[in-house]
């Protein structure tokens, strides 16, 4: 356990140092270049690009979370139950649509830049969060729901004080999946001029510079692993806090 934490801490530190002072790593990546190519990406600050990448993922995930959770809440209420199948298929379609196709369709409407990428990531992020929220809200132990009703909680009070807090760790699991998918998918956004790490990879491919490709890929990969693990740890903490520790080890 503590070994795992130590390795992740080292990875984080190396990543931050690399983003702030990439020249320190010129020697390492130099081995991958030929004909005097630059060994460190030089068409913009890696730190800025990374922050922009993270920002786009964060905005898209936040929007997806709000919409997916709201949708899941509505379709698990008595008045919204009839929309359950419809919303399920909508979220599924969002997931099966190739992100490149979403970009291609969105560009004529939204123009080049960040907007089409946000739309694609948003649609992509919906399903895991929606499905997990649905699972969380519908798997509250029946005796707990019965007790909440029997003590005179209104529907809204049951949702806010009982169902959502108990479902929170599961919802977070959905967000975690969504974030990781978005982190990887966001690279494609560079093809329509969104400022993401895809830009570094594409520059590398175009100039046949393996060092660039590797830099873009590694940053995305390390970010994904760190965020995934961080959210997993938060989830376990929440499970323990909400008295569902037995599920934390499952």
């Amino acid at each position: 356990m503590s070994w795992g934490i130590a390795i992740r801490l080292v990875a984080l530190v190396v990543l931050v140092v690399f983003l702030v002072q990439p020249e320190l790593f010129a020697g390492v990546f130099g081995a991958l270049t030929q004909n005097g190519q630059p060994s460190i990406y030089n068409q913009g600050s890696l730190l800025d690009i990374t922050l922009s990448h993270l920002g786009i993922v964060a905005v898209a995930t936040l929007a997806a979370t709000l919409v997916a959770v709201a949708l899941a809440i509505i379709v698990t209420r008595p008045f919204g139950a009839e929309f359950l199948p419809l919303s399920r298929s909508l979220a599924n379609i969002g997931q099966t649509f190739p992100p490149v196709a979403v970009l291609a369709l969105a560009v004529p409407l939204l123009g080049f830049g960040t907007a089409p990428t946000l739309v694609a990531l948003f649609l992509y992020g919906l399903l895991p969060i929606f499905e997990n929220t649905l699972t969380g809200l519908t798997s509250t132990p029946p005796a707990v729901v019965e007790a909440a009703r029997g003590m005179g909680m209104t529907g809204w009070q049951r949702l806010v004080r009982v169902e959502l807090p108990i479902a929170l760790p599961v919802i977070l699991g959905g967000i975690r999946l969504s974030v990781v998918i978005s982190l990887a998918t966001a690279t494609i956004g560079s093809t329509v001029a969104a400022r993401t790490l895809g830009e570094v990879i594409i520059a590398g491919l175009q100039s046949n510079n393996t060092a660039f490709v590797l830099q873009g890929g590694l940053i995305v990969g390390v970010l994904a692993v760190l965020i995934y693990d961080g959210l997993s740890a938060l989830e376990r903490l929440l499970l323990a806090r909400s008295g569902q520790a037995s599920r934390a080890n499952a």
Binding site: P141, A143, V144, A147, P165, I166, G243, Q244
Partner: peptide, 8 residues
């Protein structure tokens, strides 16, 4: 029965 205590 089964008390239905709120686990959280």
């Amino acid at each position: 029965q089964g008390h239905g205590l709120f686990p959280h």
